[in-house]
Write a protein that binds this DNA or RNA. Structure first.
Length: 924
RNA sequence: GGGCCAUUAGCUCAGCUGGUUAGAGCGCAUGCUUGAUAAGCAUGAGGUCCCUGGUUCGAUCCCAGGAUGGCCCA
């Protein structure tokens, strides 16, 4: 036997032991955990168990099935998952059905590119649809794999897809309902048009190229009556004006659109001047007078000014057609170029069209598909529009309406295929009438029943609906759900009949929407159907598809049915969706069900790079979600999600991940400490909460308070608040409680009742902590849960079988005591530091002073107080004004086993250790 | 150009309806520990709370203007 005074007693201690590794190795281990969850049906089992409880549904806004998911998707999708898991852990039936938006032009264009086809007219529509479907499914599968890799729970085997026959049927059924309610109509709309290819183009099919256009300033002269009215609005009397002719000056670079002019748009808040120039009066914005009038500005005299608003609804005469041009207000009128008076032709511009809608102006379309003027253009009938420019300018000059003409180079939209300049041309389209049946007003009113995070989201959504004109839902494309409208062969009337639409819905549900292209029109006609206008009975199918915003706008109708309740409890999307999906869903819901389709709208921010700039592939800051998870693991990125204030814009990059990775390691190690001290705890050794030692009971109370807080944060959708609370909790537990419990855990006999009590408190803390973080750190929480000895897990085989709630309640007195201990410990630390020692040394004894109200509870702690303060002896507990400690050098010598200063040598066989240690060693 | 939003330590963020020396975690520096060890504990440094005016006894917080950045439009 070696000399006992030199003996190392390490092997007589209960040192921590666990298979839970310090190194997380997330990218490698997480995929196996996903399989593990799937094999055990963890999500499905939990859902089944919750079935008896209230449903709570987060309805998935469908991502577009094109391209890889990026970190913006990650943020949004993981947030959704966190909310779903919170719901599940709170016992709710949180059935999450993910979905995808799979029709539409971007996929059609990508497919055409893939096939090497530039003009979609060159391929059979059914064949193109087949190829588009393949492409969309390819992307769905890639995106689904990425979403699953995030650790997200949901019914991944049965997502909803806008290309499913049942979904297409819902779309068409919705159209039928709208038709029944007279909510649909066909009207003109300004669309991008290529006169060379004779086709409508989408925004995505446009390339901007430089073009030289004529730049002309044109007089729109007032009639006598109009002149008097305008002068009155300037507060100028007839006498002062000396009978000079009065004109409003407009500026345009497309003289060929002048035949379609019906209005002049001013800006309400801009200042307009009445200028006397030579023998005439000119009206234009004061801010632009100098640049617009050129050399004439020197001789111009400002007679009076007024605001655009004052001139609203005045009128002047069209320069060469026999009609008025009315003055309107529009907020897009800019004060950079031109005259501040914008030539407005609703048939030839998107802005103009919207203004026309607002003011109920006629939409003139005097241009045919080939770009030639029709008879409506009067003297210019038959001319090719771009050739007519010159003629029109010359005529304006001759009639004295031309003020100035120049050439102007600007960036102008061109057809991506033939590279000819495109025009805006009014074409017939299907619309949802927003003001029919007060739909707009009802939609705005419906937001009142919805909660918004952030709160200003409500105003924003209302504005989007307020400012959005009629909703154009038709597209002249192939990859989508057809609008089941028919055209009367005899009178050319376009008809969207609810009965036809219902037939189509039925047919699509069985055979898919492709049948619209292959079936004869008769398939869809009800018995004895005749044209409501002329009575004829011969029809053709219209070849329009529905806008994909309408398709995604009816997901709530397609998904929230059968067992699923309507409306949903929560939707979570990026801020761009106020204009997009939040709006489109609300409008369809109000039109069909007269209520909002969701109870709560949560908006998440944009993901920018570390400098706060948008992510960009070209700058190398665009990061795919799958790549990021391969590099850092999903859980670190999930923790990043929680570490940001997701409602605002957030930043992402390697340095940010590095930082949150360190927080992750902290959490992980503290979990590891708890696990490593549970290894030998038998089930029968678990001490009831009521029988625990006072400090252990206090630790449990702190856990209870933590759980209550976390629950409150979660219920307020405050993921970030919960994250901060988790960090605060585990850091406080570690520095006070874990540190205090090391000696009892290590040095007491394994089965010592005091040690079992500490272990039981650790088990309590661990299980609750893991449940609390399971929505955030799903992989790590489950990994740790599986390392809890099985006997201690009970029937909660997965962390997702547990319940997110405290099993006790902390009193405020408990928490005050806890804080008092932290305060005392800090004072010991400061005191020992001052004495040149450290708190870890047990080199001091302490006399403790506490306020009277706490004396009893502090005394109750017994030896635990000594451990919590890391001193060798607590000499006395005194009553005082406020918490304090008096430190004195520790009495005795350092025990080689427990490191505290004690009387040594009580046991002659173990002279270098204290009596309690000796007793433990002898018992081994 | 318009609407909306943001701006607090190196980083991620707290700061309740305006009220004494503005906080946390991470990082950094220093010390301790080597029985949570690629861990743990402690101490410390670090901030014209974007700028300028205004209201107020008092402003990070309220108001106005501006700067920078973002989103949605144009």
């Amino acid at each position: 036997m070696s000399d006992q005074s030199e003996r190392d007693y390490r092997d007589t201690l209960n040192l921590p032991k666990t298979a839970f590794p310090m190194k997380a190795d997330l990218p490698k281990r997480e995929p196996a955990r996903i399989d593990w969850w799937r094999e055990r049906g963890t999500y499905e089992r939990r859902l089944e168990r919750n079935k008896k409880n209230a449903p709570w549904i987060l309805h998935d806004g469908p991502p577009y099935a094109n391209g890889e998911l990026h970190m913006g998707h990650f943020l949004n999708m993981v947030l959704k998952d966190m909310f779903v898991k919170i719901g599940l852990l709170e016992g709710k039936w949180a059935n999450f059905i993910p979905g995808w938006d799979m029709h539409g032009l971007p996929i059609e264009l990508e497919t055409l590119k893939h096939l090497g086809i530039k003009d979609f007219h060159e391929i059979d529509p059914l064949e193109l649809r087949e190829k588009c479907k393949e492409r969309a499914i390819y992307w769905l599968e890639r995106q689904r794999a990425t979403r699953v890799r995030m650790g997200n729970f949901g019914d991944w085997e049965h997502p909803y897809r806008t290309i499913d026959p049942s979904f297409e049927a819902t779309i068409v059924e919705t159209l039928a309902e709208l038709a029944e309610k007279s909510q649909l109509y066909k009207g003109l709309r300004s669309t991008l048009w290529c006169v060379h290819d004779e086709t409508a183009l989408a925004e995505a099919e446009i390339e901007y190229e430089p073009k030289v256009s004529p730049s002309v300033y044109v007089r729109f002269t007032a009639s006598d009556a109009q002149r008097a009215a305008i002068l009155a609005r300037f507060n100028v009397s007839e006498g002062e004006s000396e009978d000079a002719p009065l004109s409003v000056v407009i500026w345009t670079t497309t003289p060929w659109t002048l035949p379609a002019n019906v209005a002049i748009a001013l800006r309400a808040d801009a200042t307009y001047g009445l200028y006397r120039v030579g023998g005439e009066l000119l009206v234009l914005a004061t801010a632009l007078a100098e640049s617009a009038l050129g050399e004439k500005f020197a001789q111009a005299h400002l007679v009076a000014t007024t605001t655009g608003e004052k001139l609203d609804n005045a009128a002047v005469r069209h320069p060469f057609l026999d009609r008025d041009s009315v003055i309107v207000l529009a907020d897009y009128v800019e004060m950079e170029t031109g005259t501040g008076a914008v030539h407005t032709a609703p048939g030839h511009g998107a802005d103009d069209f919207e203004t026309g809608m607002k003011y109920d102006l006629p939409v003139l379309n005097p241009v045919d598909a080939r770009g030639h003027f029709t008879a409506e253009a009067g003297p210019y009938a038959g001319l090719f529009i771009f050739k007519a420019n010159k003629q029109i300018v010359a005529d304006l000059e001759a009639s004295g309406h031309l003020l100035r003409a120049q050439e102007y180079e600007h960036s102008y939209p061109h057809c991506w295929r033939c590279h000819n300049p495109v025009i805006f041309r009014a074409t017939a389209q299907w619309f949802i009438a927003m003001d029919q049946n007060r739909l707009r007003a009802r939609a705005i009113a419906a937001t009142e029943s919805v909660a918004f995070t952030p709160e200003w989201g409500e105003t924003r959504l209302k504005q989007m609906i307020e400012n959005h004109p009629e909703w154009c839902i038709s597209r002249q494309r192939t990859w989508g759900t057809p609008i089941p409208a028919i055209v009367c062969v005899a009178c050319n009337e376009s008809i969207l009949d609810a009965r036809v639409a219902r037939n189509a819905a039925k047919r699509f549900r069985e055979a898919g929407a492709g049948s619209w292209w292959s079936d004869p029109v008769e398939t869809y006609l009800p018995e004895g159907f005749a044209c409501p206008k002329c009575g004829a009975t011969s029809f053709e199918k219209e070849k329009n598809i529905v806008d994909i915003w309408f398709e995604s706008g009816v997901t709530h109708l397609a998904v929230l049915r059968d067992a699923m309740p309507w409306p949903s409890d929560l939707v979570v999307e990026g801020g761009d969706q106020y204009r997009g999906w939040f709006r489109s869903s609300l409008v369809t819901a109000v039109a069909v069900k007269n209520a909002a389709p969701y109870r709560h709208v949560v908006k998440n921010g944009w993901v920018n790079d570390e400098q706060g700039r948008p992510m960009s592939k070209s700058r190398g800051t665009g990061i795919d979600a799958a790549d990021a998870m391969g590099k850092w693991g999903a859980d670190v990125l999930r923790l990043w999600t929680a570490s940001t204030e997701f409602v605002d814009d957030v930043r992402f990059g390697p340095n940010v991940v590095e930082q949150v990775g360190r927080v992750y390691r902290n959490v992980r190690n503290r979990i590891r400490f708890m696990l490593s001290n549970l290894d030998d705890l038998p089930l029968e050794g678990v001490v009831e909460r009521a029988n625990m030692h006072p400090l252990d009971g206090l630790a449990c109370a702190v856990v209870d308070a933590f759980m209550a807080d976390v629950r409150r944060f979660y219920d307020a959708f405050d993921i970030h608040g919960a994250y901060l609370r988790v960090v605060e909790f585990e850091s406080a537990m570690s520095s006070l409680y874990f540190d205090a419990m090391k000696d009892p855990l290590y040095a007491l006999a394994a089965g010592d009742e005091r040690r079992r009590s500490a272990q039981s408190a650790l088990l309590y803390a661990l299980k609750h902590l893991l449940t609390a973080i399971a929505p955030l750190l799903s992989f790590t929480a489950e990994e740790a849960w599986q390392e809890i000895p099985e006997r201690l897990r009970g029937d909660e085989a997965s962390v997702f079988d547990s319940l997110l709630e405290a099993h006790g309640k902390a009193s405020s007195e408990d928490l005050e005591l806890w804080n008092l201990l932290r305060e005392l410990r800090a004072r010991v630390a400061a005191g020992t530091e001052h004495a040149g020692a450290t708190i870890r040394d047990y080199e001091t004894d302490a006399t403790v002073v506490v306020p009277a109200a706490f004396v009893h509870r502090v005394r109750e702690l017994g030896d635990d107080l000594r451990e919590a303060l890391v001193v060798s002896h607590v000499l006395a507990i005194e009553e005082g004004e406020r918490a304090d400690v008096r430190l004195t050098p520790a009495e005795g010598s350092k025990c080689r086993r427990c490191w505290k200063y004690r009387e040594l040598g009580a046991d002659p066989e173990h002279p270098s250790i204290c009596a309690p240690c000796a007793q433990v060693v002898r018992s081994l």
